[in-house]
Simulated assay, not measured.
Amino acid sequence: MYLQKEVKKLTRNLASSDSKAVKLGQLLNVCATNTLTRIMIGRRVFDYGSSGWDPKADEFKSMVVELMKLSGVFNIGDFIPFLDWLDLNGVKAKAKKLRKRFNAFLTSIIEEHQISKNEKHQNIYLTTLLSLKDTPQEGCKLSDEEVKAILLNMFGAGTDTPSSTIEWAMAELIRNPRSMVRVRQEIDSVVGEDRLVTELDLPHLPYLQAVVKETFRLHPPTPLSIPRISEESCEIFGYHIPKGATLLVNVWAIGRDPKEWSDPLEFKPERFLLGGEKGGVDVKGNNFEVIPFGAGRRICAGMSLGLVEVQLLTATLAHAFDWELENGLDPKSLNMDEAYGLTLQRAVPLSVHPRPRLSHHLYSSSSP
């Protein structure tokens, strides 16, 4: 319900851009963040603003991106422990500054939540967390810092990853007009042109699902999995893995392995359709060729929400708008370079002109 409402707000905002180019990733980040905060704290925290996005939302996105960069940056102290205290790369100093910014942001959210506490907030995630701080249950008591740490984990994992994945999906569809035409024809046949896509439509859109799977394969939200520690010594493909070793799974490389994928660098959603080379493969950790959410007991806890979010927003953007790159750039010339960090960001944000293609009433504030 919350996701559908935020998608409608995003659609209306894009339609009112007055032919101005918009940075799609910024708007998607607002949509993803508000969806998550409505679930977590019962309200939206950002708006799109008169210029397309709330400056506070832009600041928040920059904080999350910096967090992901610092989490994945090379740090000499990690490899030469006795030099760690020198902070030669300045990682700790930057992390402390970022911590202060996040602390101020999270403190304001908690304080506003406590001031506006009412009956509607009784079943909200943050209310439950704060109740464990004030009234411990079964020996479980949370401190202020632990509550903020949990919120930070949720914001870090649940906002930037879906918005960046959708931005990659739209970039690929713009670069591959045949795929755009095919996914749009499928949606038109199921949904029509007099309403927007809903979550109930998604199971009936196999090509759209294939587009999302192919996007996850080429552009996984986290190119390296979160670290694991080996509990016992073992040998894998002739490599000795000692007990206690830190392990990182290269999800990005697995999705581009020529031993597993034909034309691995090509965007080919058809490979995931029935009869295709990977027709029975999903992205839920059951098939190790493509594991954007990880696998096993430590698979991403937000996988279900994230997958629906990516599918619904990609479907809505492809269905509701025609897309033109800023300054009339040829789609074949679109920069697809990746930025370094724990999450897979575009090096150059996708700047586009959205052109509404459905019934006009769907983009008005009075539409249901």
Results as ranks from 00 to 15, higher is better:
141 K>D: 12
84 D>T: 01
61 K>M: 14
355 R>H: 07
282 D>S: 01
175 R>H: 11
336 M>Y: 04
324 E>I: 04
217 R>F: 07
217 R>T: 08
278 K>Y: 13
55 P>V: 05
103 N>K: 10
340 Y>N: 15
54 D>A: 10
307 L>V: 11
343 T>S: 08
12 R>F: 01
80 I>L: 03
150 I>K: 04
104 A>C: 05
268 K>A: 00
107 T>E: 15
245 A>Q: 08
24 L>E: 05
55 P>D: 08
77 G>V: 02
78 D>Q: 00
141 K>H: 11
5 K>R: 15
39 I>C: 11
267 F>E: 02
254 I>H: 03
128 T>E: 13
223 P>Y: 03
98 L>Q: 02
177 P>S: 02
118 N>L: 11
232 E>H: 09
16 S>F: 06
28 L>C: 04
53 W>I: 06
259 K>M: 14
86 L>Q: 10
248 L>C: 09
334 L>Q: 00
75 N>F: 05
100 K>T: 15
101 R>P: 13
96 K>F: 02
340 Y>F: 12
286 N>S: 14
358 L>R: 02
281 V>S: 11
316 T>I: 10
95 A>T: 09
117 K>M: 15
179 S>P: 15
276 G>L: 09
219 H>P: 13
287 N>K: 07
251 V>H: 09
205 L>R: 08
307 L>P: 15
259 K>V: 13
327 N>Y: 08
43 R>I: 05
158 G>M: 08
165 T>N: 06
253 A>D: 11
77 G>E: 10
48 Y>I: 10
2 Y>N: 14
357 R>K: 11
64 V>F: 03
268 K>L: 00
198 T>D: 14
224 L>P: 14
152 L>A: 04
90 G>C: 05
319 H>V: 06
36 L>E: 08
293 F>N: 10
333 S>T: 14
166 I>P: 06
344 L>E: 09
193 E>W: 13
161 T>P: 11
42 G>Y: 03
109 I>R: 00
267 F>D: 04
355 R>K: 03
135 T>V: 08
68 M>W: 03
151 L>E: 15
113 H>E: 13
85 W>P: 11
255 G>A: 02
162 P>D: 06
155 F>T: 05
195 R>E: 15
280 G>W: 12
42 G>S: 09
279 G>R: 07
53 W>K: 00
274 L>Y: 12
29 N>G: 08
298 R>G: 06
122 Q>C: 06
68 M>I: 08
275 G>R: 02
200 L>Y: 12
191 V>D: 01
224 L>M: 12
102 F>K: 04
331 P>T: 01
286 N>P: 15
287 N>H: 13
123 N>E: 07
114 Q>E: 11
171 A>N: 14
207 Y>I: 07
177 P>D: 08
304 S>G: 14
1 M>K: 10
